[in-house]
Design a protein around this nucleic acid. Structure first.
Lengths: 237, 237
DNA sequence: CGGCTAGTTGACTGCCCTCAAAGACTGTGG
DNA sequence: CCACAGTCTTTGAGGGCAGTCAACTAGCCG
């Protein structure tokens, strides 16, 4: 099952931010290396690491969801990524962490000492190449999000967020049209550069437009997948 | 002189987007490897590569400035980065380029076949590690820009852009308070997620507030460095 | 029930975008 | 040297999208 998530594929489309942090690290050697790490459990709202912490380990999510974010002095917050099972967290930092990683639900995580990883890379160049590719994918995702936040309207941002979640579900064999949001409106807002009110209003509007249904506030059903995708890609209207 | 730019340091502050694409690749081995590449010259507006081009080489900028950007179908554009001498362009892609790289002025660039680079990484794990670190820095820069675009006002964005340019100049030993902008207002606007009108108005306002001076539209003099930095960091008012 | 957190909805404001026009700078040709 | 075109930049007027502030609703748990 890890192998599925560890496939090496270039990213698909513009509109879906592939959501993880250092997702989808390719290669068996790396999988083996990470699979032997120490297992830890985090409750919801527990920090995996915080800004300023020294970088000591990388983390492979096995169960749950981790929210990666940065904060400014005045309280403004930017969610950089959501990490899902199969994703690796904590790669893109050196020295000390510049981000916070906080579980949004009870999560199980494998911890790999960074020193061991670096040593492994020095010994096996192929491993380093795999990591480079993983980082490249992460960079692509980050730029995709930049594009979304910078250029798109609220409706397009939320649509693109939902399509991204849908794609991820599809990939792991879950329902692509009905899923539970593992994060709060505040997390979504800070991810998309909006306010919680605007996110809420946008969900309401998407429901009114027949794009989605919301039986509960966390339970999303995509009714008009193509319409939502068109909106996400800016092909709407 | 390459060595200077190739130093390995964690990034300094939040507000300055360190501007390059795969900037500051650390390590002599990598410098040596790249220094042997074929030399090419690009005129202003020439493309180094375009979206969809197969990834064949990475490029070390020796002279000039390269603008990295993506475009959407409807013409919206996101400038991802500006590459300056010492920066490496084209690393964060696999298979085919997802970005355009276009010279904003006459530029001289060293070209290194990607296959050679990959082979070198497989043979020397340390080289892979250096590249990972370079990609990590690029990721940090990308997230910094995301933060800026997502959370900051127009004034803060432009201030943070100027502080970033100033820091870069300082690092290469140039004047940190007076410099020529090597890109157009349109490039700046698409970098910061604004319109050219807003960028222009913001420059005018910064001049009116005594933060900067503009003898010509491309010649920036930072008058109140601390004030500009406070604005960039959101510590203003 | 009361307290707490999360989410929704409404009224109003404001920042930035849009549209439009004029000014500044560059290069070309007469 | 000036005229002219083309590009880039500045400035103005007005409108819209999303933010702010505020009230209300819905769950959840003690």
């Amino acid at each position: 099952m890890l192998a599925t998530s560890f496939a090496l594929q270039p990213e698909a489309s513009a509109a879906s931010h592939e959501i993880p942090v250092s997702r989808t690290v390719g290669g068996d050697s790396l999988a083996r290396r990470l699979g032997t790490g120490q297992l830890r459990t985090f409750e919801a709202k527990d920090y995996v690491f915080r800004e300023g912490d020294p970088v000591a380990q990388v983390y492979l999510v096995e169960v749950g969801h981790i929210c990666i974010y940065r904060t400014l002095a005045d309280g403004r917050r930017q969610v950089i990524d959501f990490a899902y099972p199969g994703d690796i967290v904590g790669l893109g930092a050196m020295g000390e962490h510049g981000n916070n990683a906080q579980a949004t639900a009870r999560s199980r995580v494998r911890c790999v000492p960074i020193a061991a990883l670096q040593q492994a890379i020095r010994e096996d160049g192929r491993l380093g190449l795999k990591l480079c590719e993983a980082l490249s994918r992460e960079l692509t995702a980050s730029r995709e999000l930049l594009f979304t936040v910078s250029q798109r309207t609220a409706g397009e941002r939320v649509a693109s967020f939902l399509i991204g979640l849908s794609r991820r579900n599809e990939r792991i064999g879950a329902d692509r049209c009905e899923f539970v949001l593992p994060m709060t409106r505040a997390d979504i807002a800070d991810f998309l550069g909006l306010t919680i009110e605007t996110v809420s209003r946008t969900f309401t509007k998407l429901r009114g437009d027949g794009m989605i249904d919301l039986a509960q506030s966390v339970l999303v059903t995509i009714v008009d997948y193509e319409g939502l995708r068109a909106l996400a890609d800016g092909r709407s209207q």
